[in-house]
Amino acid sequence: MAMTDAEQGSKARTRLPPMTVLGPILALVILVLVGAALNSNFLSAANLTNVLSRSAFIGIIAVGMTFVITAGGLDLSVGAMAAFIAGLMILVMNAALPALGPGVPIVLLGMAVALLAGLVAGLLNGFMVTTLGIEAFIVTLGTMGIYRSLVTWLADGGTLSLDFGLRTYIRPIYFDGILGMTWPMIVFALVVIVGEILMSRGVFGRHCAATGSNEHVAHYSNVRVGRVRLITYAMLGLLVGIATIMYVPRLGSASASTGVLWELEAIAAVIIGGTVLKGGFGRVWGTVLGVLILGLIENILNLTDLVSPYLNGAIQGVIIILAVILQREGRSA
């Protein structure tokens, strides 16, 4: 014990960041170098914009997931939740089309539906975890099944499609932007900035870490543990709503296969970024790196024929396990 203290102390004095901080940064840098070496198109603005826009959905959700995990929780329902919200949004917009016509009001209506549905779904998860005291894993496994099934039912086993005219009207929400950035990128960036500040400097972030670190200590220290947890789930639900708002314009449809495995990708990004799975410590900037690392691996495999893109999952899996090993070394060193 005495040794670890002394070593950590001297490390901090020489200002060399530990491997837990360097690891994800190095991994990202290496990926970028590898990508650039393998394909000249990799660093093109078009490709990077594409990667970032596609990563934005998972990224926005992963920021929320960072808070949930830091506070000692978990949410497996986000992928199914996104699919359900997308389905709901499409149904409502289609239904309102004859009355409102394509225009700003119907888009705002769709957004309001997504945000509200996300918030309610998140609150529901949070309520069951905190007030009813059921394991987060069980609760969100349950709601995952419920939302997945609901969207399949709404789509009657097929696909829910946005009215064609409407689809053309809202396409810019995904594909347009300002200053060379697409809207998903801009929203992702804003969510990250707010999330990072809240986590690292905010009272709320501190309360999340305390709750996840030891909820009894937090309770005895006057932290309203239940409320902190509830807010993290509600926040995550809201962010799923925001991600869905960006996602629907991209394809204009939702089906049973929408958002499949998003929850695991989001959790993986959070863990790769250095947040501790059992709670107590989280960092939003790390999550962003995690999202980018996962996104870049997929992109590089698609761009080159060195390794089959079908092995994407395998490589991501290896990265996740490596990240956790690095974290552990960082803890014991």
Partner: peptide, 21 residues
């Protein structure tokens, strides 16, 4: 150990947790 201090957090975070306001 179980209710008083966050054992895996630093002194600063522990000190101010109860009076973070």
């Amino acid at each position: 150990k179980l209710r008083g201090l966050l054992l895996d957090k630093g002194l600063r975070e522990n000190l101010t947790l109860q009076a973070l306001w």
